[in-house]
Design a binder for these strands. Structure first.
Length: 212
DNA sequence: AGCACA
C-alpha cells in the first residue's frame, strides 16, 4: 500500500480514475485499487498559489472558476516547509487541545455518490479524448442530430452543482455548455456522464470535455 | 470534430 500526493485534488481524482482497476500483474491477475486518502499529510490553507503561470485572458469565461486550478509545466509542487503548532507554550496547562489542522476544518469532499442522481439509460464507451484543464464548465459534443433539448436539460440540471446550460445548435452538430457551481461538481459529472446515452440522440454516447 | 456567454 502506498500514498501519493498531488498538487490539487483534481489531479488526485484524475490519477485515481486513471489507475483504478489497472491490472499490474497479468499472471496473478492482480488489479490495482485506488482511492482518495481520508486525510492529507499536508493541508493547504488559503488561496492556492498564484496563477500567473498561464494566460488568464482566455479563462475568464463562465464564472471564471477555471482559474482555481493552477497549471505549470511540472504538475508537482513540493509543499512549502510547514511549522507545526505555536513556537512556545503549547504544553502549558491552559493551552487548548492541539489541533494538527490548525483550525482548518476541511469542507466535506463531495465524493461521487455510488448511484448518480439522474442515471442515464445507458453508456457507450468514449475513446481516448484530448481534453483541456479542469474547469467549472463542461463542453458536451457528440449529441446526435435530433437531440431533444429538454431531455438533455433534465439529465444535466439534476446533477449536483448545476448552474446553467447553453445549447449551440448547428447544421449537423449540436453541442452544449454546462456551468457548475465549482470545478469539483463539473469534474464529477465529467466522468459520471462520459459516454452517457440520451434516448433522443439515438445510440451515441455524449462526449464530455472541458472547454478550450 | 463540432467550443458560447460574459
Amino acid at each position: 500500500m502506498g500514498f501519493a500526493l498531488f498538487s490539487t485534488a483534481q489531479f488526485a481524482l484524475a490519477a485515481r480514475d486513471a489507475l483504478q482497476h489497472l491490472v499490474f500483474d497479468a499472471e496473478s491477475k492482480s488489479v490495482l485499487h485506488a482511492e482518495m486518502a481520508k486525510k492529507n499529510l499536508f493541508v493547504k490553507r488559503g488561496i492556492v498559489g498564484d496563477s500567473n503561470a498561464y494566460d488568464q485572458s482566455k479563462r475568464l469565461r463562465t464564472g471564471g472558476d477555471c482559474t482555481h486550478s493552477v497549471y505549470s509545466p511540472s504538475p508537482f509542487h513540493p509543499p512549502p516547509p510547514q511549522v507545526w503548532g505555536p513556537p512556545h507554550g503549547y504544553l502549558s496547562p491552559a493551552a487548548p487541545p492541539y489541533d494538527p489542522y490548525g483550525g482548518y476544518h476541511a469542507p466535506p469532499v463531495p465524493m461521487p455518490p455510488s448511484a448518480p442522481i439522474a442515471a442515464p439509460s445507458s453508456y457507450v464507451p468514449v475513446q481516448n479524448v484530448k481534453d483541456n484543464p479542469p474547469c467549472n464548465t463542461l463542453f458536451i459534443g457528440n449529441l446526435g442530430e435530433n437531440i431533444n433539448e429538454e431531455e438533455l436539460r433534465s439529465l444535466l440540471s439534476a446533477q449536483p452543482g448545476f448552474k446553467q446550460m447553453k445549447v449551440l445548435r448547428q447544421e449537423r452538430h449540436t453541442v452544449c455548455f454546462i456551468e457548475f457551481e465549482d470545478v469539483n461538481s463539473a469534474t464529477n459529472v465529467h466522468h459520471n456522464l462520459q459516454g452517457a446515452v440520451i434516448p433522443s440522440s439515438g445510440s451515441v454516447g455524449m462526449r464530455i470535455q472541458y472547454p478550450f
